[in-house]
C-alpha cells in the first residue's frame, strides 16, 4: 500500500450536521412541493403522470449517488462519504415508496381489483415491486441495533443494493414505449458507477477459479 501523503479529509461535526440538514431539506422539500403542486393541479397537464415520473426518476438519481459514495470514499480518501450513505439510501426508499403510492392512489385510484391484477400480471410492475420490497428490507434493517444484531447477515442482505440497481433500471426501460429513450443513458451511467466493483469481483472470481484448478 502506498503511504498516505496527507491526512484523510474530514468534516467537523458541525459541518456534517449542516450538510445533512441541507440534504434533508432539499429531499423532503422537493417531495412535499411535488405533492402540494399536484394536489392543486399545478404540476402540468396530468399531475399524476408528472408525479410518477419525478418520484421514479429521483429514486434512481438518489440510488446513483448512494452507490457513488463508497468509490468516492476510497478515491479521496476519506471516511466522510460513508457517513451519508444510510441517509441517502433511505431517501431512495422514500422516493420509491412515493412512486408506488402515486401509482396505487392516484393512477389506479385504489381500484384494488385492478391493482392486484396489475401487480401479478405485468412483468415490469413485478420487477419494480421486487426492487421496492428489497429497498424496504434494507431500510428496516438500517437501524444500528438491528445491524449489530444481524452481524454478517446484515452485509449479505445489504449487498442486494446491487440487485436493486438493475431491477430499477429494467423497470424504467420497460415502462417506455420505444428503446431509444432516456433509460439507455441510465444503464450507461449505472455501468460506469459499478465499473470498479464489477472488474474487482470478476478478478476475484477468476482468481478463485484458478485456485481450484
Amino acid at each position: 500500500m502506498k503511504p498516505r501523503s496527507k491526512k484523510p479529509w474530514r468534516f467537523s461535526h458541525f459541518q456534517r450536521r449542516v450538510l445533512k440538514a441541507v440534504i434533508h431539506l432539499i429531499a423532503t422539500g422537493y417531495l412535499v412541493a411535488l405533492f402540494y403542486l399536484g394536489v392543486n393541479d399545478q404540476l402540468g397537464p396530468d399531475p399524476v403522470d408528472a408525479l410518477l415520473n419525478e418520484t421514479g426518476i429521483w429514486a434512481i438519481h438518489l440510488l446513483f449517488v448512494t452507490l457513488l459514495l463508497s468509490p468516492l470514499a476510497k478515491r479521496l480518501p476519506s471516511p466522510e462519504p460513508i457517513k451519508f450513505r444510510r441517509m441517502l439510501g433511505i431517501y431512495v426508499f422514500v422516493y420509491a415508496i412515493a412512486h408506488f403510492f402515486t401509482y396505487a392512489f392516484f393512477e389506479l385510484q385504489l381500484d384494488w381489483h385492478l391493482l392486484t391484477s396489475e401487480l401479478v400480471k405485468r412483468p415490469y410492475i413485478v420487477v419494480g415491486m421486487v426492487a421496492l420490497i428489497l429497498l424496504m428490507a434494507l431500510t428496516v434493517t438500517s437501524l444500528s441495533v438491528l445491524r449489530r444484531k444481524m452481524g454478517k447477515q446484515w452485509q449479505r442482505l445489504h449487498y442486494s443494493i446491487y440487485a436493486i440497481l438493475p431491477l430499477a433500471l429494467l423497470h424504467f426501460s420497460w415502462s417506455q414505449k420505444t428503446f431509444w429513450q432516456a433509460p439507455i443513458f441510465y444503464w450507461l451511467i449505472g455501468l460506469i458507477i459499478m465499473r470498479g466493483r464489477i472488474t474487482r469481483t470478476a478478478a476475484k472470481t477468476v482468481k478463485r477459479l484458478k485456485a481450484y484448478q
Partner: peptide, 17 residues
C-alpha cells in the same frame, strides 16, 4: 401486454385528488 385497458384516467381539471 404491459397494462390493462379496462379503465382510463380522464384528463380534465383538478389535481391528484
Amino acid at each position: 401486454p404491459r397494462w390493462s385497458q379496462a379503465s382510463e384516467r380522464r384528463i380534465t381539471t383538478g389535481g391528484l385528488l
